[in-house]
Design a protein around this nucleic acid. Structure first.
Length: 314
RNA sequence: UCAUCAGCUUC
């Protein structure tokens, strides 16, 4: 059963949800447990197959396996992702009525769902009410989620305040917290303030990761600050972070927008040579750049190249 | 020892 669960997790993690369910169905000899169903329900929810997830939920109950809070959280997350926040709340209430108590993750999922649907003040309200409870004190994920919401809502100063407030709660910001805030600053055109946050973070002993670098790089690229952008890429490589498709895409966007589309075209080749094959977004960026410059033949050429490289256009 | 929560790029 343990091995089957591991296999199912692998399939689910690589997006092969149908294969996971199939493997489960064909395996009659092993007794599924709560983890087995948990993985499958999680996978189905991620794939948007909520109906099938509900069926499995009933099936596990029918076999006498009680779904724990992790399984319920998976369902709630799935409902939220499908935009059915009302259903998620209702489900949440029915769960709360049983012996199975919601946990901090349940609340984090709901707060994030509110943020993602633009209902930031409601998210903040839940977040504040969590402070007055003893069992669901906000953790670093909660703080990061709310900071993200405030940034997306254009309330940067409140976001920064919240970061400062964390220090006093014994709940330390991590690299994700910082990069959320750095992204907010960059998007608001305050990339330099983003860099000072990076320094603050480094001082506190955290190493920036690829996403942090990509976030700052994108800020520089959007501001057409080519020299600093290229310097930053140097720095990230020196500190052991390998550029990703996202890194290259920010650079491509920069080149496309600063009359150097040929450089962007060249990057398609460069990145492959460096062991990072371009994805559909990279091709889209450069094709769009060529089209903007009315170089339709080159765009067509690149599209062909993309298909030859087995990258599916969207 | 296995399942559930937050961050980056084009449109």
């Amino acid at each position: 059963t343990f091995s089957m669960n591991c296999a199912l997790n692998l399939l689910v993690r690589s997006g092969m949800y149908d294969a996971a369910v199939q493997l489960f169905r064909e395996e009659g000899a092993l007794i599924p447990n709560e983890f087995t169903y948990g993985s499958l329900i999680h996978g189905l929810c991620k794939a948007g197959r909520l109906d099938r997830a509900r069926e499995l939920l009933e099936e596990m109950k029918g076999r006498g396996i009680l779904p724990g809070v992790a399984v319920h959280n998976g369902v709630i997350k799935g409902l939220c992702k499908a935009g059915k926040f009302g259903d998620a709340l209702e489900y949440f209430k029915t769960v709360a009525g049983t012996r199975c108590m919601p946990d901090i993750i349940t609340f984090n999922i709901l707060v994030d769902a509110l943020v993602k649907s633009g209902r930031v003040e409601e998210a903040v309200a839940i977040f504040e009410s969590m402070h007055t409870s003893n069992q669901w004190l906000p953790n670093v994920v909660t703080y990061t989620t709310v900071i993200n919401g405030l940034c997306k809502d254009g309330k940067l100063d409140r976001a920064i305040e919240l970061l400062d407030l964390m220090a006093g709660t014994g709940c330390c910001p991590n690299v994700i917290t910082y990069s959320v805030l750095v992204e907010g600053l960059c998007k608001a055109g305050r990339t330099d303030k983003g860099f000072s946050l990076l320094r603050e973070m480094t001082k506190r002993g955290f190493q920036p990761d690829v996403i942090m670098y990509n976030t700052l790089l994108n800020g520089l690229c959007k501001g057409r600050r080519s020299d600093e952008a290229l310097e930053l890429v140097e720095l990230m490589i020196q500190s052991g972070c390998h550029p990703t498709v996202v890194t290259y895409n920010s650079l491509m966007e920069l080149f496309c927008r600063s009359k150097q589309v040929d450089m962007a075209v060249k990057l398609v080749q460069v990145m492959s040579e460096r062991g990072c094959p371009p994805d559909v977004v990279n091709y889209n960026t450069v094709i769009a750049g060529l089209c903007r410059d009315a170089r339709l033949d080159d765009a067509r050429k690149l599209l062909k190249q993309m298909i030859a490289a087995r990258c599916v256009p969207d």
